[in-house]
Design a protein around this nucleic acid. Sequence first.
DNA 1: CGTTTGACTACGC
DNA 2: CGCGTAGCCAAAC
Length: 136
Amino acid sequence: MFNPPNPKSFFQLVWDIVGEIPAGCVSSYGQIASMIPPDEGMAPTRMRHLAPRWVGTAMRKTPRGLSIPWHRVINSQGSISFPKGSPQADEQRQRLEMEGVRFDARGKVDFALVAWQGPDEAFLQRKRLLPPRPLK
DNA sequence: CGTTTGACTACGC
DNA sequence: CGCGTAGCCAAAC
């Protein structure tokens, strides 16, 4: 992982970004990490690819009262990152299906259909974010 | 204090 | 494809 100089603002930024994901769309830990510039904690080094783990950490530490669409964040493989069969995985899948997101037999979504393209330009500028890396 | 534990990802079999 | 693993580290025990 990397060493966030500003864990507090970094987590807040992650939550803010997740809050922008519209219903019926999904993002990934890596895609969210790709938007966060080095001055918010993303090391521009070899550790960069570990950043997604910190996005996961931020999600795990989401405050109770904070209402954000946490279920719209999945992993780069297009599947839910909670253990299959766990209550959390079941709830996440149910919430997504409720929004029309379909899963194939292997439990994966089709990014071509549901991938989020990132926040609008105004949000990017207001939060000083980088353009998101497209989902594969 | 030492250990365990992660809501990850890219890559190689 | 699926599975294992390196990368690399702050928190929570």
